[in-house]
Simulated assay, not measured.
Amino acid sequence: MSTLKYLNEEGAGQQNSDQFHYSQVVILGDIVKCAGQGGWDTTGALDANDIEGQVDLAFQNVDRVLQAAGLRGWEDVYSVRSYHVDMDASFQLVVDRSKKRIPDHRPIWTCIGVTRLALPDMLIEIEVEAYAKKA
Rank of each mutant, 00 (worst) to 15 (best):
V85I: 10
F91R: 04
D41Q: 00
V80T: 00
Y83K: 06
V94G: 03
H84W: 13
D41I: 03
V62E: 05
V77C: 12
L93V: 02
V62R: 00
Q54P: 02
Y83Q: 07
Q54S: 04
T42E: 05
R81P: 07
Q54I: 08
Q60D: 02
G73N: 08
E75G: 02
F59D: 00
N49L: 14
V85Y: 07
F91K: 10
L93G: 09
G70N: 13
Q60N: 12
F91M: 06
R64F: 13
M87Y: 12
A69P: 05
L93I: 03
G73L: 04
S90R: 02
V55S: 04
A58G: 09
V80Y: 02
S90E: 01
V77N: 04
R72D: 14
A69W: 08
V85H: 08
D41K: 00
K99N: 14
Q67E: 08
D88V: 12
D63T: 07
D63S: 03
E75L: 11
D47P: 01
V65Y: 02
H84V: 09
R72Y: 13
Q92W: 02
D86G: 03
R72P: 05
V80M: 01
V77M: 10
T42R: 15
G53I: 08
A45G: 04
E52I: 14
A45D: 15
R64C: 09
G70T: 08
A68W: 06
L71C: 12
E75D: 11
Q54M: 07
V95E: 09
V62N: 02
W40F: 08
A69N: 11
Q54T: 00
R81L: 06
G44D: 04
L93P: 03
G39T: 01
V80G: 00
V65E: 04
S98K: 14
V55Q: 07
Q60C: 05
V77A: 11
N49V: 10
R97C: 04
V80F: 00
Q92A: 05
T42Y: 14
V94M: 09
A45Y: 12
A48I: 15
R97H: 14
V55T: 09
L71T: 03
V95A: 07
S79Y: 12
K99I: 05
D76C: 02
R101H: 15
T42V: 11
R72C: 12
L46C: 09
R72N: 12
R97T: 07
Q67T: 10
A48C: 15
